[in-house]
Amino acid sequence: MAVITDVFEMILIDDDGDVIGKTTLQDSSIEVQVQANDVVGGRGGEVIGVLHSNRTTTINYNDISFDFEWVAKQFGQDVVTHAGIAYHMPKWYLAQDIGGATKITVEKTPATNHEMKIYKEDGQRVTGFSVSGNEVDFTSATPAVAIGESLEVKTYIYNTPAQTQEFFIDNKVFAKGVKAVLETLEVDESTETATHKIQYEFYKAIPDGNFTINTASERTAQAMGSSLRVIKPRTSTVVGIVKRIPIA
């Protein structure tokens, strides 16, 4: 008896020939649903036939690997790489005597228009400070800041390096179609030996655009779930092919 024992591996090929490979799926499925209507007639309303009208195929998967390029594709966007700006997350600092002035040294060099926001422990917002390089000077700050005082820099804008990747989220742009190829193994149950590769090739599948990116306070890998809908080509009713390939 043959059984399917392994999760799919998957490659996605877009119209430009770019390929995204997925070999870290936690689970995956190909769900086929057929729309059918019963033909009812005769005494007692017996079912005397079934009329099939449509078949839909959906590829579902959860991937433990985070792929920035694939996230962009699901938004219908391409990743671009260039220097830019970003917001720094909140962090506490201790005011120190640096060169005879009350200062803190932040991690990133703030941008020219840094929009820095600083607060004391009691919630008072500090204004009137000056920024030079990575140093923030509180000589003229209001309210006054004392050496040894704790300050929370809630955010500021800093310049990112030229290797920074980004894409836009445009609510009028949606994911484009890809060719989806999924492969698993057929295993002989008695010998536990892989005998064939089972490969499903779908000529065009479109990400449904629904996905969830989970995070948690515990440092564990979080899977990202998504789905693709297989669609019919304009000139054919054939949406894909299934291959059973012997393993030599």
Rank of each mutant, 00 (worst) to 15 (best):
F202V: 02
E189Q: 11
A175Q: 05
T193I: 13
P207H: 04
K197S: 05
A180Q: 01
D170A: 13
F174M: 12
F167K: 03
E201G: 01
A194F: 04
A175C: 13
P207Y: 02
T184L: 03
E183P: 02
K204T: 08
I206V: 12
D170G: 11
H196F: 08
L185W: 05
T191L: 10
F202N: 00
Y203D: 03
F211I: 07
L182V: 02
A162V: 15
A180I: 02
K176G: 06
V178N: 00
D170N: 15
Y203K: 06
T195M: 10
E192T: 11
K172D: 13
N171L: 13
F167N: 03
E186A: 11
L185A: 07
N171Q: 15
E166I: 11
F211A: 04
F168D: 12
F174S: 06
A194C: 10
F174P: 01
N171Y: 15
K176V: 06
A194K: 03
F167G: 01
D188M: 10
E186V: 09
E186T: 09
E189K: 11
T160R: 04
T191I: 10
V181P: 00
F174W: 12
T184F: 02
Q165G: 09
T160S: 06
T193A: 14
S190Y: 12
P161A: 08
D208P: 03
Y203E: 03
G177S: 12
Y200L: 06
I169A: 13
G177N: 05
T191C: 08
K176P: 02
A194I: 06
T195Y: 07
N210V: 15
K197M: 07
T160M: 06
E166S: 14
D170M: 12
F167Q: 03
E192R: 12
E201C: 02
F202E: 00
T164I: 09
K172I: 14
E186D: 13
F202M: 04
E183Y: 06
D208S: 12
V187P: 00
Q165T: 11
T191F: 08
K197C: 05
L182N: 00
E192G: 11
